[in-house]
Write a protein that binds this DNA or RNA. Structure first.
Lengths: 127, 127, 127, 127
DNA sequence: GTGGTCTAGACCACA
DNA sequence: GTGGTCTAGACCACC
């Protein structure tokens, strides 16, 4: 698993981890039913605290992205994970705030989104 | 000034305040050179501490959105405020993370953006 | 009298006024015994509050630069004004702090001082 | 860390703290990458409020002297911190005002500067 | 009236 | 343990 963590970023490490795992799914590197590395081994590989990995996994379980099974964690088999209304509200709030900034600072969001669609596909094909 | 703060939200109050003020500008309710309510009066109106308002104002000054003058704070007269490269990077990161979630949870971002463009204009015209 | 006040500056107006008056003396535009404009007229000319001009004059009296006489204020006849040890200590502190910044931010103070010596003389001769 | 704060001074405590930290760097007592004492521990040691220390640290981060990392604050690794034009203008203003006073009060700045260069080096070598 | 500074104490998120 | 946020209340400088 390829995980990139920026220790200097202001984004909490567990949050970065959450998004890196989701990114793996979006790019098609990980599929429903795949099992994840153990908390201990992943923490060791990345060089971060056990608790941090644990928290990231718990968050993903809470979102329905991962499922905890006997032998550890795996990608949930039911897709797409159902998201709660409150989560969707949070999502919209965040997006709305970003749009406000885009307006205030004159950022071209449409162009950025095009870039990102490409970046999201990433190396989807070489997997 | 119309300010809506959700005390139950996990978003810090000062951050909400920052976005509410920016929203006022984007919607055309406040214009370059307009002066803002004093730290104490706004705090009193909203029912929060003056330090919280102060922090929001300071953040906006740091972003170039507000300017501090002898008699208080006002909307910066130079528009649009130039945004630093590092800030833009942060912006892109946040947007990228949102796009990941949109993919994972099958959210139609394009549709949401249309909604938001309308919401952003808001009551621009009745002012 | 030529007084330049920057209302947008973070330096208090009365402080700017104090320095502008001292600058007039240093440049030889004003001499011992000269009387100053009345508080009211100067405030009117600059467009600031009476209290502000008053405070500046009071500070200068306190420093021995001005003397209050029946008809108003005049430049002290005794030169150079004696300064207290505590004032000199303050002066040294300020200068020391500036030197620290010069070191940290790699500013060439010697060069700046040369510039300033010229600027201080200013239009000394055309008066 | 050696920090000297004058509680009776009219200079704000956080400002004194800012200069004391810079002085530590200039004197070579602290180097790029060194981590600073935690906000709370330093506040406790000096006997001031943690918010006051916090503000000093924030100012230094804003100036590029300190960097905030996950585990706290550290001296920025990139040296020297680049200083903005507006900051340099402020610096020149302050220095100019001091030079005015030096002229008015007949203070020998050149001599003081020599003293200060020695004081700045301080105990650089015994460390 | 305005903002600036400082204190004291609380709760939370992160690692 | 670390910093982030928020509150409450105080005193001061400036205009």
């Amino acid at each position: 698993m390829i995980i990139e963590i920026d220790m200097a970023s202001e984004t909490p490490i567990y949050t970065q981890l959450v998004y890196q795992i989701k990114l793996g799914i979006v790019r098609g590197r990980m599929h429903a039913g795949d099992s994840l590395p153990s908390v201990r081994s992943l923490a060791g590989d990345i060089g971060i605290n056990l608790h941090t990995v644990n928290k990231a996994y718990k968050v993903l379980v809470g979102e329905g992205v991962l499922t905890q099974v006997k032998k550890g964690y795996e990608i949930s088999r039911e897709t797409p994970p159902k998201i709660s209304e409150t989560y969707k509200e949070e999502f919209k709030e965040k997006l709305f705030d970003l749009m406000i900034d885009a307006n205030v600072f004159d950022i071209d969001v449409d162009m950025l989104l095009e870039e990102m669609k490409i970046k999201l596909k990433g190396d989807e094909q070489h997997d």
